[in-house]
Structures are given as structure tokens and as C-alpha cells.
Design a protein around this nucleic acid. Structure first.
Lengths: 351, 351
DNA sequence: CTGAAAGCGCTAACAT
DNA sequence: ATGTTAGCGCTTTCAG
């Protein structure tokens, strides 16, 4: 007659004691076998009996119980800190997931909607569930304020950073990306390149523009001779800006765009004006956006934002934990992807 | 005779006993106060002392421990069962996350890459972590085989289904979506509508096509008089198909597309051929794809796929759990979104 | 109105 | 070579 009756439905899952009973050993022995506990030597015959029982019952350890005991949950918190939960998050999550699973961890996901209050709240929920580490990601590269409580577990920032770099962060190398995109155009023979940028105030915009100017100067050109118009990363701003560009007398032979969406807008405006890409004008995108850049006609030459690799690296560094943990900013290369929207200018620049 | 001090490196988080000690009550009382345990009456003064201590220490219950005790983890497993982890998953996750958080749950996310083996494996990992329920989602609506082990917790399918409908599923009402898109075009006065479909074998394609034909017949037209060409949902297939369409003598006054990406391809081909949208040809998309449909020029008239709502509904139904749980298929409406790419045909159809 | 105590399922030090 | 035992931090009877 048990005084403390527990009528909670016992998920029906076999427990370690069930395995022990079936194998005719103690529960501890089951753990020793399954965990290959160092310093414990188990006779081969016992091990077989245990494994046999495990297989027979389909036993799998309860990780909540393991976690409570060991103080770790085999779970990593992924915080998507942005209003839009879109392509960026999906890619970064995919990379982080892949690397995490390889290490036996799973991702506990939250989306803050960009609010710092929500972020603090949700990081709390994550920590309550004993996540072993935190990945904090933003869609548009930017400076963020991370909840104080995040300091309680290893944390790494993806596509964002804190002003003093006290938390390690992983960022795309946008300066180099902008430089290489411009360089590719220069190498093709273009000498008059317009740049229709994304949102002027954005970190990425400034970095890419800097790269663009570096490339120009590197080719002996004066950046001030080149048109730079700023948009907002949306397709329609590309369309508007391109039309504005076309109303002028001189037409550039190539147009660099803030991102692929803007490039699509530019393509539309160009076509509407009866111009051909890349015959009359070359167009360069940025992002290598999934299901867009490669599929459009002509396929966009662009620069790939390594979102997936960034997520993967974050999860890997978190696992490497210990002393080898990264500090400061890690810049990831944004590889150039040349497709059909760029070509040599029809008439030599100096013609 | 002080009780032993603790020399174990404690994760730094205050525990329930710390609160109890500070408030001068027993640990049980702390639980009673925090959980507002029914059938337990606590004096107002004691409650205040406890809450005061909780605030002072910043105490938050360890949910892993709660979970072990209660047999629930306040966590829902979200399985994204597809090779591409993209826009669909992001939207569905966003909806599911929002609804879950409102109920105090968090999402534990896994991505199977479309492999059934991986799915079984990962669902195992999810169940090991005691997730209270499972959401199983696919990017392209389709029939799936879910791991047997999923049967151990409440499960709901999003954008996919099992052949015998033994597991409840939430799907977009594609037939109605296709019908309403066609109807909108008919109402505008179009009588010659071509349909450039997505992948012919896809469930969604067939359903939308059926809706298209229903609308035509409803208007007294014969579907056999209307061109139907099948593509593959990629932008370039829209481009190719539109070009094929334009090489024929008779040009339809409106084109319905398999999805927005194909519509973009169609737009490009039309523009390239010197045609204007919607003046010369109306174009109708499908999906209302984020950052694409609304931003393109002209903005696409389309049909919204309610991915976010589907995710939200799934999480809500899982919470409603008990007896009110849904069975069979639930179809969600895909609302028509009219923008700038559709208009009345230039010349009356019967002209 | 409050406290003592029995576990949830597991790990790991300490016996044997 | 294997078993015993003491918790991990919490909920929830049951007693006082």
C-alpha cells in the first residue's frame, strides 16, 4: 500500500530499471554499459545481456533526467532577433542545426520579433530549460544589445555584434564582398559603374560601399566620378533608382545593386526601357538569394552571403567550447558567383 | 551545528531551497506560492515573504527538474521534413512559435532534409527530450510517412498528410485558391486565360488546376479551350513557358502562374517581348511570397498561402489537446491579394 | 496554514 | 566486475 500514489501517465517508455530487471543486473550497470563509463570494466557477457535487453525494450535514456543529473541538456538556444523571420534565419538555422546534430545537440528556437524586451524574456525561457549555450542571430547585420542573462552560458553572435566585442561574433566580410564584386566588373572592362545601394545607414551598406570604392581606387579611378544612389534593399527601390539613372544623359555600362531583390527591380526597369542585360548593361546583385538569383533571367551574378556557414561555424565553436573558444569578430568570406547578368561592355570604356 | 555549507560549484542559479531559506519557510511552501497550487491556502504574509525572496534572488524554477517530475517539458518538437529549409518553414515556424510562446511552450526544431531515416532519428532525439507534442511540416504539400515513434505524443501535420488521414493535418485550400484566382480574372472580363502551372505531379498543382477549371466552367467556358503548360515552380520555367506562349498566334489576355517565382519569370519574358503588364497582359501569381510579390514592379496580384496561420493553428490545436482535438484534414483559406499586375483586358474578350 | 518526505529517471562516487 | 546509494531541483501527497 504505497502512501504516495503517482497516477501520472508514465509515457509508456521503458526505464532504466526495466532494462536492468530484464538483463538481470543492477540499474547502475545499465548506465555503465550505455555510457561506456571510463574506469568501469564490465564483463563482455554482461554487456551483451544489457545491450540485448536495451534492444528488446527499445530503451532510450530520458535526456531530461540525464540533464537534471549532469547539468546539461544537449540543447542549444537559437535566438532569432529580428522582426522578419525569413531567409536569413532559415539559412543560419539550417547551418547551426546541422553542426549541432552532429554533436548530439538540438536547437531550441525563439524569435524575438526584434524587441529587446522579448529577447530578455525568451532568453529567460531558454535558460530555464537549461540550454547549454546560446546563438544570437540578427537578419540585418547590426549592433545589438543582448540580455544580461545571456552571460550565464557560452554565447556567440551571428550576423550581429556588441559594440565592445565582448561577446564573440561571426560576420560576413562585406568590405571584401563589395570590393570583389566591383573588381569583377572592372576586370570585365567596365569603367563606368553605378552603385544602387541598400539602406544607407545599414552596416552592410557602408561596408560594401567601402569595398566598391577601394576597388575603384585600386584601378586608378576616382570614386567621385561614379554615381551612387541609395535605396532600401527592396525590389521596388531598385526599380525606382534604375529609372532615375536612365533619365540621365550618361548611362553607366554596369550597375551594382544593394542586393538581389534590388537587382530584380533594376532588371525590370532596364527591360521596360528596352535595354538588354548583359548586352547593354551589366547587373551585379548581392546575397545570392535562394530561389531567386540563380533562377531569374538572366541569372544574376552576385556575391554569396554565407549565412549557412555562419550558423554552422557558430554551433561548431560553441561545441569546441573550452579554452579554444573564439573571441572578437570572425569575418567569413562572401564568394563571388558569376552568372549571366554580367559581361564585358559593348564598347570599350575609352571608346 | 550549522547545516553543512554547500561546496559543490552550483551553476550560479538560486534553487528553491535558497528561496525557502531566505523567506524562512519550507521549500514546499515556495512551490505552493509560485504554482498557486489549488487546494493550498497560504497566508498573505507568507506569500509576500516568499515573493520578496524570489524577487531578491531572481529565482526561476528549473524547468528540466519540473519536467522530470511532471512528465512534461513545456517544449514542442517542430520537424521540418524537407530538403529545402526556406521560406515555408520560416513562416510556419513563426506562426507555431508565436502560438506556443503564448502558452508557455518553446519549439525544439529539427530539419530532416527530407529523409525518412533522418526523420525517424530526429524524432527519436525529440522524444528523448520529452517534447510534449510534435508538429510535422513539409515545404511542398504532400503525402508523408511519419516515424512510428511519433505516435507516442500528440502529433499534427502541417502542409502534409498521411494517406489514411489517421493523423490530423492542416492544409491550404488550394482548390478554392485556384478557383478564386481564376474567378478574379474572369470578373475583370478576361475570357482567354492561360495557366502556366508548377510541377505537374505536385498535389498543389493539381488542386489549383482543378479550381481553375471549376471557375472556367462556372463562367460557361470550356477548360479545353484554354492553354495549360506545365513548369516546375522555378522562375526560369515561368520565363521559358511565357516565351513559348508568345510564339503562338493567339495571345491570352491573362496568364495565371504556378507561383510568384514563375510569375516573375513571366514578367521578365513579357517585358523582353515589349509587352506591358497589366495593360497588354494580366499576370496572376500564387503564394504571396514574402519580399517578392509585393515589391516587384508591377506588384503581383496573387493568392496568399497561409503558412504562418497554419503553424499557429497547429500549435493552438496541440495546446487544446484534450478531447477537442481535431481529426482529419483542416483546410485553410488562401485569400486573394489583388495588386497591380492584373487589370481588365484592353479589348473586350468578345470584341 | 505549513512542513516532511517520497519520488521523476538518471549518473557517479563509493562500496563490495 | 558489479551493486548501493546519494543526490540533480522540483511537485505533491499526507501529516501536523
Amino acid at each position: 500500500m504505497s502512501t504516495h500514489e503517482d497516477h501520472r501517465p508514465r509515457a509508456g517508455r521503458p526505464r532504466r530499471t526495466d532494462v536492468a530487471r530484464l538483463a538481470g543486473v543492477s540499474p547502475a550497470t545499465v548506465s555503465f554499459v550505455l555510457n561506456k563509463t571510463a574506469g568501469q570494466t564490465i564483463s563482455d557477457e554482461t554487456r551483451q545481456r544489457v545491450l540485448q535487453a536495451v534492444a528488446e525494450l527499445g530503451y532510450r535514456p530520458n535526456r531530461a533526467a540525464q540533464g537534471l543529473r549532469q547539468g546539461r541538456s544537449a540543447t542549444i538556444g537559437f535566438v532569432s532577433h529580428d522582426a522578419d523571420f525569413g531567409v536569413f534565419a532559415a539559412s543560419a538555422i539550417k547551418g547551426a542545426h546541422e553542426a549541432s546534430v552532429r554533436q548530439g545537440n538540438l536547437l531550441l528556437l525563439v524569435n524575438t520579433g526584434g524587441s529587446n524586451r522579448q529577447a530578455a524574456q525568451l532568453v529567460g525561457e531558454l535558460l530555464d530549460r537549461q540550454t547549454d549555450a546560446l546563438i544570437f542571430a540578427a537578419a540585418g547585420t547590426r549592433s545589438v544589445v543582448i540580455p544580461e542573462s545571456a552571460g550565464r552560458v557560452p554565447t556567440i553572435l551571428v550576423n550581429c555584434f556588441v559594440p565592445d566585442d565582448s561577446t564573440p561574433s561571426i560576420l560576413p566580410d562585406e568590405v571584401r564582398g563589395g570590393r570583389e564584386a566591383a573588381q569583377a566588373l572592372l576586370d570585365l572592362g567596365h569603367r563606368d559603374i553605378a552603385y544602387l545601394t541598400g539602406t544607407a545607414s545599414a552596416w552592410a551598406t557602408k561596408a560594401r560601399l567601402r569595398g566598391f570604392r577601394e576597388a575603384l581606387r585600386g584601378a586608378g579611378l576616382d570614386p567621385r566620378d561614379h554615381t551612387v544612389l541609395s535605396g532600401n534593399y527592396h525590389a521596388d527601390s531598385g526599380y525606382e533608382l534604375a529609372r532615375r539613372l536612365l533619365r540621365r544623359d550618361a548611362r553607366p555600362t554596369a550597375i551594382m545593386c544593394g542586393n538581389d531583390r534590388m537587382a530584380v527591380g533594376v532588371l525590370l526597369a532596364l527591360l521596360e526601357a528596352g535595354l538588354r542585360v548583359p548586352e547593354d548593361v551589366s547587373v551585379m546583385g548581392y546575397d545570392d538569394q535562394f530561389q531567386l538569383a540563380a533562377e531569374i533571367h538572366p541569372a544574376l551574378s552576385t556575391v554569396r552571403l554565407p549565412y549557412e556557414a555562419m550558423g554552422r561555424l557558430a554551433a561548431e565553436q560553441l561545441a569546441a567550447d573550452g579554452p579554444a573558444v573564439q573571441t572578437g569578430r570572425t569575418l567569413l568570406h562572401c564568394p563571388l558567383v558569376i552568372r549571366g547578368s554580367t559581361a564585358a561592355p559593348a564598347r570599350p570604356a575609352r571608346g
